[in-house]
Design a protein around this nucleic acid. Structure first.
Lengths: 154, 154
DNA sequence: TCAATTCATTACAAAACTGAACGATTATCT
DNA sequence: AGATAATCGTTCAGTTTTGTAATGAATTGA
């Protein structure tokens, strides 16, 4: 019945591998002087520019007070900027700067290298099967695409 | 080339699903009044009884000072106990009590239910394929079987 | 027998997170 | 129009974690 008791079930394996993958990716972006939450924010702003901080906080699942510190750090480094909205001067629309776009390109490259390193040992067909299975689970579990809950912590 | 850009690559999906699985399992053991680190410790003691606290701390990847508080809480509830070793009275060998064994049985049951809930939508053949693929990745990445790094945090 | 090492525990300082409060701006209601 | 309520970003204080170093008991080795 049980295929591999020594390594645990698929659920445990999934959690274990997920934590491992997140840690490894964190090491890669650390070479760009970025933390995991910072990377998640940059990704969110890159895919949906112009959103307010409150909207992003809700989407990333973190309190707005925490997002302020994140934005501060990235804005000081010139990676993203707050733009006042003339229509509603309460909110700050977030956009990537040119430097931020360039940095996002490096992040994407790191993600590709990370993925290739993680899936080493699987051929193309197997990678396709894995992607399909994981995608179906994610959809069934109702997960928000592109948002990593663990990126809430440093 | 890219199969599913909306949900990210397999590595991201893996990290995302892993965090989700860990959170969900945490909710399940919370009904047993257990935190995730406590559950990880109980599992470690159940699979390798009689180890010293220092050995377990190294295995679980947490400082020994942190393990003391964990053991204190579980010992007060009568789930595990410290036994002095006559040969070396410095170290405390950890063992599950009868109550602890019973609790571990409930944890195992929760794990089965959790796994079944997570893999809902996949038939037996697909589950086997997933288990095989994840197991190969875990082995290739040199992961320690049965140890979840994320259980370090509550 | 004395010094050095190991184990468990405690104490302490540093960091992170949360929730509430605050000014500024806008929306709603009469 | 005017007054009140709600929203946005920000700040602040309080609480909770977390890792490092110091302590005491016990063992090992010279």
């Amino acid at each position: 019945m049980v295929i591999s008791t020594s390594r645990g079930g698929s659920a445990f394996l999934l959690a274990q591998l997920g934590a491992h993958a997140a840690t490894r990716f964190g090491e890669r972006v650390a070479e760009l002087d970025l933390t995991l939450p910072q990377t998640g924010l940059l990704r969110a702003v890159a895919t949906e520019p112009g959103r307010s901080q409150q909207a992003l906080a809700g989407r990333l699942g973190m309190p707005a007070s925490r997002l302020v510190a994140l934005v501060d750090g990235l804005a000081e480094r010139g990676l993203l900027e707050r733009r006042r909205n003339p229509d509603d001067r309460r909110l700050h629309a977030l956009h990537l700067t040119a430097t931020g776009e360039e940095m996002y390109g490096r992040i994407a490259e790191a993600a590709r290298a990370h993925e290739n390193d993680l899936l080493e040992g699987l051929d193309d067909a197997e990678r396709g099967v894995l992607q399909s299975l994981l995608g179906r689970i994610a959809e069934r579990q109702g997960m928000t695409p592109g948002v990593h809950p663990g990126y809430k912590r440093a």
